[in-house]
């Protein structure tokens, strides 16, 4: 690290290179992984929740159907952001309350005292003396659960609609040939469902990407946090003083999100033409054209 030994003597590109590789900047770059991790964990969970919710809502068993309907309709009338704020806090308090009851049964004071939620030290989640990464992982896990719950409900709505959109005659034909209900579902119903579900799921994926800055709102040190932190003006007290550069940092985030959504759009277009049921023309070309033109 001789190269960056004394920042005050550096100039031009060399200064910039050193500035962009400070430990804090490295944390900034790592926080992009947080975004990807959120997406990578949430997306499959959302699909499972979506399938589960849709199947529950179509179930012959009434209580399961009610549960599915309740789950899929809960997101309809509430702004997502309320859920994102509500779910982690509610989960956090629920877990701490349960631990409080188990670990500190001798304390008889109510946990809600006035306007405060107070549990014994041993019930804190995570414990107040835990390492920073434990705290971070815990709040990240809560965020993942919140995202999965909300987007799972959206996905369930989409998949439910798509399952209903498959023409009944296609399924009836399968039954007429002796396929069981299960075979009909997995071999005919689900493969045909994708055609109808993909536009909605593609849209949902875009919304999910665009919702990732909410991590910041949940107190997680994500890319938004670091962009604000690093972009803010730095006085001479800092090693690399500079004026307010938040504009540039947020511009970088903007480009990052644009690239991500653009790439996603391309992939979904591929999928859409792959799962299209209308093979009468070659749909690949016309579907990709609008994006090529937009470049």
């Amino acid at each position: 690290m001789e190269y960056c030994a004394d920042p005050s003597t550096l100039e031009g590109l060399r200064w910039l290179a050193c500035y962009l590789t400070t430990p804090k900047h490295q944390l900034f770059y790592l926080s992009f992984l947080t975004v990807f991790a959120l997406l990578a964990i949430t997306a499959p969970v959302v699909m499972i929740m979506g399938f589960g919710g849709a199947i529950a809502r179509k179930s012959q068993i009434a209580p399961l159907r009610w549960l599915g309907t309740l789950y899929t309709s809960m997101v309809r009338g509430v702004p997502d952001i309320i859920f994102f704020l509500f779910v982690p806090i509610a989960l956090d308090q629920l877990v701490e309350y349960a631990r409080h009851k188990i670990k500190c049964p001798h304390i008889t004071d109510p946990v809600y005292r006035g306007s405060e939620f107070i549990v014994c030290e041993a019930a804190k989640m995570p414990l107040s003396d835990s390492a920073a990464w434990v705290h971070n992982t815990w709040s990240f896990a809560l965020a993942v659960i919140a995202f999965s719950l909300v987007f799972g409900a959206f996905a369930a709505n989409t998949i439910f609609g798509a399952l209903n959109a498959v023409p009944h005659s296609q399924l009836e034909t399968a039954r007429a040939f002796g396929l069981t209900e299960k075979q009909t579902f997995w071999r005919i119903h689900v493969p045909q469902m994708w055609t109808y579900a993909l536009p909605g799921l593609s849209n949902l994926w875009m919304i999910l990407i665009k919702a990732t800055p909410l991590l910041f709102l949940l107190g997680i040190e994500d890319i938004v946090y670091w962009a604000r932190e690093l972009g803010g003006s730095k006085t001479g007290y800092f090693q690399y003083p500079h004026p307010d550069w938040r504009l540039w940092y947020f511009l970088a985030l903007l480009v990052f999100y644009l690239l991500l959504t653009w790439l996603s759009g391309k992939i979904f277009n591929r999928l859409t033409s792959r799962y299209s049921l209308d093979h009468s023309s070659n749909p690949t070309k016309p579907l990709l054209k609008p994006i090529e033109a937009g470049r």
Partner: peptide, 20 residues
């Protein structure tokens, strides 16, 4: 029921070939 259906193949007015 399935044994019967497997033995009585149906041809429909709208063909109903599985589109996928």
């Amino acid at each position: 029921v399935r044994r019967m259906r497997a033995n009585l193949s149906m041809v429909f007015q709208q063909f109903n070939l599985w589109a996928h």
